[in-house]
């Protein structure tokens, strides 16, 4: 994939779905003429669908105990995340202009203590799903049955064994208020023969594997849980460049 093609794809994909600030210009403000890795572009569509059509979260109620939780486990996919959060007005867009600077709250990995709307600090791979399982259990134990926990991972991140501790436990115990989202850009060094979803399904999860650029397909998949079991959405995008 050439750089030009990538940019064109992103501007098209990042078009706003409602009257809020367009995401693409915000992403450009974060980018500030640097080259982004393909991981930024691999997640942008899922993030837009989540924040615009799925998650019950609001900038004025970031501590509402009944909010949905979105946990970005692959914390390096941060530029699109910041752009989407700024578009949804969780923080002022001018924070984007100094991302990573000495006075910035926006690092190359997100910190929940520094950025409104960010549920976990991440960066080291393999931590989000365990935290998500704990969050789902904590909500259930308190009788909060409406909010749902969404955790976004990458297919290469699934290499980390900690994920498989969480996948099996959540599946075999029927943790119904948890959704995992795997961005599959075929970047796992040794691959996942049969696809990432198979690792979840064998433990009792429901699964949907969809085109990670198709917003309607993503929306259907992200709202496709059956209420009895955890759900995984595998969003397939272009393979990561070698």
């Amino acid at each position: 994939m050439t750089a030009i093609t990538t940019t064109a794809t992103i501007v098209e994909a990042a078009a706003p779905l409602d009257g809020r600030q367009p995401v693409a210009p915000l992403l450009e403000r974060v980018r500030a003429s640097r080259e982004f890795g393909t991981n930024v572009y691999s997640t942008i569509d899922v993030l837009q669908v989540l924040y615009q059509r799925v998650l019950r979260v609001h900038p004025e109620a970031v501590d509402d105990p009944d909010r949905d939780r979105f946990l970005l486990s692959k914390g390096h996919a941060v530029a699109g995340y910041y752009a989407v959060l700024a578009a949804a007005e969780f923080f002022p867009a001018d924070w984007l202009d100094d991302q990573g600077g000495p006075a910035s709250r926006l690092g190359d990995h997100p910190d929940r203590m520094l950025v409104p709307g960010v549920e976990i600090g991440s960066g080291s791979l393999g931590h989000g799903l365990g935290l998500g399982v704990g969050s789902a259990l904590g909500l259930r134990a308190q009788g909060r049955l409406e909010p749902r926990v969404y955790v976004l991972l990458g297919d290469a991140e699934l290499d980390e064994g900690s994920n498989h501790e969480a996948i099996t436990y959540a599946g075999t115990t029927g943790l119904a208020n948890l959704t995992a989202i795997v961005i599959d850009n075929a970047s796992a060094t040794h691959g996942w023969p049969g696809g990432p979803a198979a690792r979840f399904v064998v433990d009792g999860w429901t699964a949907a594997t969809v085109d990670g650029r198709d917003h309607d397909a993503l929306h259907t998949a992200l709202t496709g849980h059956d209420g009895n079991r955890p759900h995984v959405v595998v969003a397939v995008v272009e393979p990561k460049e070698a």
């Binding site: 935290l131 704990g134 259990l137 308190q142 969480a166």
Partner: peptide, 13 residues
């Protein structure tokens, strides 16, 4: 690993 991750998630709620 999951045991401590779960504890973190419980505490966050």
């Amino acid at each position: 690993q999951l045991m401590v991750g779960v504890a973190g998630g419980l505490a966050l709620t």
